[in-house]
Design a protein around this nucleic acid. Structure first.
Lengths: 182, 182
DNA sequence: AACTATACGGAGACACTCTCCGCTTTGCAA
DNA sequence: TTGCAAAGCGGAGAGTGTCTCCGTATAGTT
């Protein structure tokens, strides 16, 4: 990749990240990203064929954070319920960090053709690790995909309704108790 | 309202219901509704100022069904868990009956200005009745709004990913167990 | 039958995603 | 250094969507 292209690409991602974070995915137009990045729309679309691929690039750094959160929760010297709740809270918080991200990512959970497919894999394996780590404390039949979908759904609602963390906590407690062996 | 206006309005709602049901909210344009209803777009927008108000009119008959479902679940001669699960299943099924409805309705849960505000009230009071009916079988602090949001979130995911009923059932069992007193 | 309030309908304003293609720049090779 | 092909740039505009404006037509009353 030519140096000017590299520079433009990096600047676009930085600018887009700031815009998406402050205004939400839907409220930011590609023209707006192009203008703020001081490139033409053609340049923008050369680097990112669709708006979603741009979003994917913006969210690139998440994978590392996800795995770190699993480790942190499992290392917690606390009952399984607290470990689980810590992870779910962190997981939901990451999903709602960008307005509009939770619904979009969660919706593409079963779709290998989605631009978010790689991120979904990361989430699934993180939940797999969490489930394995907690072992028999959880109900026997729980699947990573189920956790991804339930928490993703709750996070999407919280995101679109802009719920406070406190409200979120109450719902995650219900989900956590449902996931634990009874 | 003039007779021709009444006729047009009714026809628009019928046509729109069929279109939304078969193709989903997002995949149907207002032009398409107007054309299929054999009216101009101006006429369509006179009756329904926004696409969402049209959707609201299309979903008008739901309120009755919701209350009937609560009664049916409470009348069930079965353990509380089964009653709860029956209601949650029915509730989620109604939300996913129209593609795209679950996310839209659930997102407007706290917003009194939404065109779906009346429907949200219906759902909330239905869940209130269910919670009261099940009494101490449920965890003490559960709120109707929490149930609406959690089940709405799960339904929205199931809707967007077109999950089979079986997959849905597994997730609702987790939610139900989380709602029950432990 | 005349008249007026009401309703109709479609052209088009505006916003958005994404494409096409002529022009410019970069980086390599002579 | 200079020339040149490949790579990149940028913006006009195509296509599609929601929604508005306003001249025309019609229902219902007198």
């Amino acid at each position: 990749m030519r140096a000017d292209a590299r520079r433009n690409r990096d600047r676009i991602v930085d600018v887009a990240r700031a815009l998406f974070r402050s205004k939400g995915f839907d409220a930011v137009s590609m023209d707006e990203v192009a203008k703020a990045s001081e490139v033409g729309t053609g340049t923008l679309y050369r680097h990112f064929p669709t708006k979603e691929t741009l979003y994917d690039a913006v969210l690139e750094a998440w994978a590392d954070k996800v795995n770190a959160a699993v480790d942190a929760a499992l290392d917690l010297n606390a009952p399984a319920r607290d470990q689980l709740l810590a992870w779910l809270t962190e997981y939901a918080a990451m999903l709602t960090a960008h307005k509009g991200a939770a619904a979009r990512i969660t919706a593409s959970l079963g779709d290998p053709g989605s631009p978010f497919a790689a991120k979904c894999e990361t989430y699934l394996s993180a939940n797999r690790r969490m489930i394995d780590g907690l072992g028999p404390a959880l109900r026997a039949d729980v699947e990573p995909m189920q956790v991804c979908r339930i928490v993703g759904g709750v996070a999407a609602v919280a995101d679109s309704s802009e719920l406070p963390a406190e409200t979120m906590k109450g719902m995650l407690e219900i989900v956590a108790d449902g996931l634990l062996a009874s």
